[in-house]
Amino acid sequence: MFKRRIGPHPHEDTGNGSAAANSCPDIWELDSGDFAIIGVEQTEQLRPHLPSDAFLDPGEGIVVLPRHVLVKARKDIPLE
């Protein structure tokens, strides 16, 4: 099911001289080609602030991924 990590391991050096010890935000490509995100679940905190054209269907949630995780993963994200 989990095919490969997208971006560096979350416990590698974060670039500021310290490794992430207590946080593991991560991006994974699945065998299906979809992506799984490990981040902080913040559905209830952010739901009231959704733009008027954004919706959450049953079973969906809002997960926050730190910017630096996606920026570092950019080169590993497939174009197609």
Rank of each mutant, 00 (worst) to 15 (best):
N22H: 12
G15S: 14
K3F: 06
I38D: 02
P48K: 09
R74H: 06
F35A: 06
G33K: 03
D26P: 02
A21C: 09
I37L: 11
H49M: 10
F2H: 12
V63Y: 08
A21W: 05
H49Q: 07
K75N: 03
V71G: 02
L30S: 04
R5S: 10
V40G: 04
D31E: 09
P51K: 13
A19R: 15
R5C: 08
A21H: 13
S23A: 13
R74Y: 00
T43G: 08
D13F: 15
P78I: 00
Q42T: 05
I37T: 02
R47V: 01
E80G: 09
I77L: 11
I6Q: 08
F2S: 10
N22A: 07
G15W: 15
R47K: 12
E29N: 03
K75S: 06
V69Y: 00
T43I: 09
T14F: 15
L46K: 07
P78R: 00
G61I: 06
A20L: 13
R4C: 06
N16L: 15
P58W: 04
D53Y: 12
P51F: 11
E41K: 10
E80C: 03
D31K: 02
G39T: 09
D13A: 15
P51Y: 11
R74M: 08
R47F: 04
L56A: 07
A73G: 00
I77Q: 04
P10I: 14
